[in-house]
Write a protein that binds this DNA or RNA. Structure first.
Length: 314
DNA sequence: AATGATCGCAACCGCTTTCCC
DNA sequence: GGGGAAAGCGGTTGCGATCAT
């Protein structure tokens, strides 16, 4: 074999492009052992020819436990549409309302499905009475964003005040029940050590993934899977508990997660657990502590679009 | 059946923000 | 407080899958 293309650097050539199952296994097992974080240490310690950033991305967007992909529900659709109208293309903020979805997924879903769907709806001759024209929703967005910013400031001040008064108890907002708004869903992130349970579900995740790969591989080329007896041994389940023949990326999501939460039942736990790299996060005062968001939550839960009356409340 | 067009999504790029010494 | 490293984030790309002709 000749020398690799453009190898004038003395440093190792870092691999790019799609991850292989082998690489995933290496990454996951390393993280199982050491926890997420320390991304810089991963390539040298595992031999992965990937940059630390690629490792982090692969973990946070794909291998991390608790990720659901594909099969967006109608309710999720509505939430994304509403939140996008409210927040613009701030995918991370939007994702913070959707447990088990990554911002990358939501962004892709928006670009590929929802924006088109909306455009079609908008262009429709008899759009619903509650549909807004483009210019209306631009105005709306402006108003909401301004209000939101004010609310964020208020929330931060309130939180700061609460913290400075009450030192001895857990400074989490929802102990005060006079505001049963969004707050209890969107407490500041509390760093948690990675739990064994979360790693177990990571194993499920990758197992699903590998199953899909195997099926794809055998369907495509007929040659036997290079996948690992070792893997099924490691995760304790046979990789062949599977179903229909048409398998692709989206097929992973057909293995539904047990006890899935609906939007209305979000617990702080599930809310927090999906945030990017929550283990590194401290107090996370994103947009979601804004008290006035309870209005928005109402809209989200009821599934309608905000009316002019709603607007006037802002 | 062949092939060109379009779609869907994982991964990358590069800029911004946060962290840490 | 400043400077470098890491993380966060949103836009964009690359490519396999699927659809249309």
């Amino acid at each position: 074999m000749g020398r690799p293309p453009s190898s004038h650097h003395h440093q190792n050539m870092l691999k790019k492009g799609p991850w292989t199952p082998e690489e995933d296994i290496i990454l996951v097992s390393y993280i199982q052992e050491h926890g997420p974080g320390n991304w810089k240490s991963i390539p040298p310690n595992t031999g992965l020819l990937r940059c630390s950033k690629s490792c982090r991305l692969r973990w946070t967007n794909y291998l991390r436990p608790g990720i659901k992909r594909g099969n967006f529900s109608d309710q999720e659709d509505r939430m994304i549409i509403h939140l996008q109208a409210l927040l613009g293309n701030r995918w991370a903020a939007i994702a913070s309302y959707l447990p088990e979805r990554t911002d990358n997924d939501i962004k892709n879903y928006w670009n590929n499905h929802l924006s088109k769907k909306l455009r079609k709806l908008d262009a429709g001759p008899d759009s619903q009475h509650h549909q807004l024209t483009n210019s209306q929703s631009n105005i709306l967005r402006g108003q909401w964003e301004r209000t939101l910013q004010e609310d964020i400031q208020m929330a931060k001040q309130a939180l700061h005040a609460a913290l400075s008064v009450d030192h001895h108890s857990n400074p989490v907002i929802n102990t005060n029940s006079n505001s049963n708004l969004l707050i209890h869903h969107h407490e500041p992130l509390i760093p948690r050590p990675p739990s064994a349970a979360s790693y177990a579900s990571s194993t499920q995740n990758i197992s699903r993934l590998l199953r899909g790969w195997m099926n794809q591989e055998s369907r495509r080329s007929g040659h036997h899977s290079y996948l690992p007896a070792a893997w099924s041994m490691a995760n304790g389940s046979s990789p062949s508990e599977d179903h229909e023949g048409t398998l692709s990326y989206s097929s992973y999501s057909e293995v539904s997660q047990p006890e899935e939460n609906t939007i209305g039942q979000l617990t702080p736990e599930t809310h927090h657990s999906h945030c990017r790299d929550h283990s590194m996060a401290g107090m996370d005062l994103h947009d979601h502590e804004a008290p006035a968001l309870n209005l928005i939550e109402k809209w989200l839960l009821e599934g309608g679009l905000p009316t002019a009356d709603d607007l006037s409340l802002l």
